[in-house]
Write a protein that binds this DNA or RNA. Sequence first.
DNA 1: AGTCAGAATGTTTGCGCTCACATTACCGTA
DNA 2: TACGGTAATGTGAGCGCAAACATTCTGACT
Lengths: 348, 348
Amino acid sequence: MPPRRSAHDRAPSQVDVARLAGVSTQTVSRVMSGQQNVRPETARRVQSAVEELGYRVHAAAASLASGRSRILGLMMVSTDRYSSAALAVGIEQAAADNGYTVNTVAVRDHSSTDAFFDAFDRLERQGAEGIVLGLPVELDSPALKVRTDRTPTIRSMVSSMQPDAPLAVDQREIARLAVEHLFELGHETVWYVSGDDYWIESQQRREAWEQALRERGLVAPPVIPGDWTPESGYRAGRTVAAIPDVTAVFVSSDEMAFGLIRALHEAGRSVPDDISVVSVDDIALAAYASPALTTVRQPFEAMGRAAALRLIEYIEGLYPEGRGIQGTVPDVHPALVVRSSTAPPRER
Amino acid sequence: MPPRRSAHDRAPSQVDVARLAGVSTQTVSRVMSGQQNVRPETARRVQSAVEELGYRVHAAAASLASGRSRILGLMMVSTDRYSSAALAVGIEQAAADNGYTVNTVAVRDHSSTDAFFDAFDRLERQGAEGIVLGLPVELDSPALKVRTDRTPTIRSMVSSMQPDAPLAVDQREIARLAVEHLFELGHETVWYVSGDDYWIESQQRREAWEQALRERGLVAPPVIPGDWTPESGYRAGRTVAAIPDVTAVFVSSDEMAFGLIRALHEAGRSVPDDISVVSVDDIALAAYASPALTTVRQPFEAMGRAAALRLIEYIEGLYPEGRGIQGTVPDVHPALVVRSSTAPPRER
DNA sequence: AGTCAGAATGTTTGCGCTCACATTACCGTA
DNA sequence: TACGGTAATGTGAGCGCAAACATTCTGACT
């Protein structure tokens, strides 16, 4: 067991370093923040004092003095979904590259506004200079507006900074890619298994799916409800299996597709011979489903990076001395990945 | 676009609240931290002033003044693996329940000590009072010891506070459960597809697997290397398929099992008729593999909660006024989940 | 040698809060 | 009515750092 470091023996401070290096604290501060106008020789002296003492800048003190926290807040639903994890990785990377820290709060019940605002307030207390919303939320509630007016917020393409910024992957494009692929194979219509409709992504895909059918003079069949989980996909699969004549299904996530295909197989329907399935995400396991999933890939990490970069860009813009961010906000687009879960409809 | 909140118009502070409520700042402080010895009537006045102004405690200032940050650091590998995400959720929840915040840093290259120490130092700068290591690392390097001596650290069952604390799931137990299940079905030996051997989990499972074979007087066949990814599982599957007489394989993650089974099927070997497969994790998709995976479940969320709770417990112990933590550190155990990827060996 | 611009460094102040201690209000009791 | 004790509130100081401003040093040019 290590020596219990009691609460009172303090870590070395700027003063200690300054004394040891024979300079003022201000010079230490300058060296630590990599400013110009320090003689190399002086900087070296300070550096070695820093190392000797194991000194580290006290972020809270720096934040208090400078008014800048360099903290990004990330609100997530408590979930282990692949997409959330990948998004978080991208955000973390972009933040780290620009000297920002990420504070994550998990919102357990995303349908509860109280839980949402609690989490938001926690991030504001921490001094978050910007917040990435990794969960579904209506951005135009008044209570939220109060908060986004003081803390810039970004969520997919909807942001409190630039409502029109074409940031995230266009969910309508995803649906179009999926549906069009199925029509090109010769299917006469396409059914849709939704995600959790709290999520705007799910809603937008549904709308785009409906519209694609409408454009072909078709009436959209009823939406089969899901909630992103494989279990809900399985239930949807049982529903689909009970409907005759279904030959093509657009499923709003790969994970649901696994469940759906399982249910279809159990009902004696073959994928893709009887029914073609296109899903969304292209998770690592999609290629190893049976059959391998045809799916619309979303570049989650790039999306996370883009969101964080756009946010940082905005934050830095608030400060005159902003020294520009590392990396440029990339264009992110979905892409259809054709594997084995789709095929032309069986001849009749 | 919201009004660009320029860097200078400050958020309301304790002073503003105090003035509005007609009390001293100290009283505001007491109300905000929920201390006793405040008349209910006074507390109410303060509360409404807080709400009127939209006041929030400035965490950095509080941290500076009190010497307590209530920040937990979390080091993760940049990955979207299910297990990491679930672990993080558990940690976040336990932290939030006890008034702690989680700062996450992703370490891109977990084999680089530099990257590791960079990340560690970033967390120390943030004032993390304890750190959860969600990645593989040797806890007995000297450079690490310097750091764990000042910041308590926890990683699975290895912690800088109590090296012997039986905290995490016993990886040997996992291997035993898996191997024993296969022997009980009548298999004569069991092959092993490893995870990334940087991870102690993978090493320990290998050791336990070897030992289980030894106890039966068997010589362990060569380890088939993997790295947790489905792709590596697929490669392992091709290797296995090329070896005659293999009837049972213990695979160190569900995700690899997906790849392995796919490769086996492509090679004309049936699972479970020709080869039984047991994996580890029980991810949400495990039940929807073809065949559904027999696997050893790890309660990741509970593990995360346990790690965070143990850490908080220790931290609070450092402070005389520690008021006890919410929730008790649970016992976490793996459990075998039998599905369809295992069966008795084919008669010969 | 003298001048001056700019680089290098130092000094002072205050960020918003909590701690330790000082003071006041209140209540029951002698 | 005075007294003591406790509950309720206030006061002053300082946490560690960076901003703003002040000062000193350096070297190029006249």
